[in-house]
């Protein structure tokens, strides 16, 4: 039900209201947006339940919350709060260097990040209900999201061209379960929705992700680190719907004030996208 929509990072109930009023189809409740996590350093963990409850009470749209990779107890806590979706996220500091959460043990759906098709299929095999390309969170730089989307979607197209014998090798190369690879070859698509995250800062960025083949977008720091969050949030929602209509994109891109400043990939020393196995 999130398809064609925008999921926005929010850190306060007030921001959550702004996001809902701008047309967000869900909000991600967290204590610091990725740009601030990157600036502050240290260990990034699950948010305080009080803070998540405050955001849940402020809006009528679905609320997501992040847990550390492999930290299944944080996920148990988030589930007990009645949050709608869990993001097992590389933006937080990983709790396990080998294992992701067994997501089949939970009732509420998980979204997980991926940089390539193998990673996406491994997350699906663990029970992820949605995949998002990771991009590089907190940078305001779309380049990594584009790389990851192109990698995932390009390999889906290549697997679709493979014959049945080649699929065994694809499964080996992708380090992914053979049945999932065979299903992918048959249907030409992932068995779960593919969203885009990490670096979206403008309406044009959102439309780029959608034209490349994402089914919805996550915007983290890009909204509330910009000059005018409300109008920018709304413009990104409209751009995500009318992603193929350049006239609408031109109209909604006007007069939004400054976007978040952003950072180049050679200026950062920690790539969150490398977290996850």
């Amino acid at each position: 039900m999130l398809s064609g929509g925008v999921i926005m990072d929010v850190v306060t109930p007030e921001q959550a209201k702004i996001a809902e009023d701008a047309g967000a189809c869900a909000v991600m409740a967290l204590e610091r947006v990725p740009a601030d996590i990157r600036r502050d350093g240290g260990i990034a963990r699950m948010s305080d339940p009080d803070m998540i409850e405050g955001i849940k009470a402020a809006v009528t749209i679905p609320v997501m919350a992040k847990v550390r990779i492999g930290h299944f107890v944080e996920a148990q806590i988030i589930q007990s709060l009645g949050v709608d979706f869990i993001d097992e996220s590389e933006v937080l500091t990983p709790a396990d260097e080998a294992h992701h959460i067994d997501k089949f043990k939970f009732v509420i759906p998980f979204v997980c990040g991926a940089t390539n098709l193998g990673e996406a299929l491994r997350r699906i095999s663990e029970g992820a209900a949605m995949i998002r390309s990771k991009g590089e969170a907190g940078t305001g730089n779309i380049v990594e999201a584009v790389r990851h989307l192109r990698s995932i979607l390009g390999d889906i197209r290549r697997v679709g061209q493979a014959d049945s014998a080649e699929l065994f090798d694809w499964a080996k190369q992708l380090q992914a379960p053979l049945p999932l690879v065979q299903e992918l070859a048959e249907t030409g698509r992932l068995p779960v929705p593919l969203f885009c995250a990490g670096g979206i800062a403008t309406p044009a960025d959102a439309a780029l992700a959608m034209q490349l083949g994402a089914e919805a977008v996550f915007v983290g720091s890009g909204i509330f680190k910009s000059d005018e969050p409300g109008p920018r949030a709304r413009a990104i929602v409209e751009a995500t719907t009318h992603f193929e209509d350049a006239d609408v994109l031109a109209k909604v891109s006007r007069g939004l004030g400054a976007p978040m400043t952003g950072i180049g990939m050679d200026e950062i020393n920690q790539r969150y996208a490398e977290r996850g196995w």
Binding site: M1, L2, G5, G23, I61, P62, R234, V237, E238
Partner: peptide, 15 residues
């Protein structure tokens, strides 16, 4: 279709 009615309602106006 299904989705978020608040989102669709806003887009119904803006479109």
């Amino acid at each position: 279709p299904g989705g978020e009615s608040t989102t669709m309602s806003m887009l119904l106006d803006s479109s």
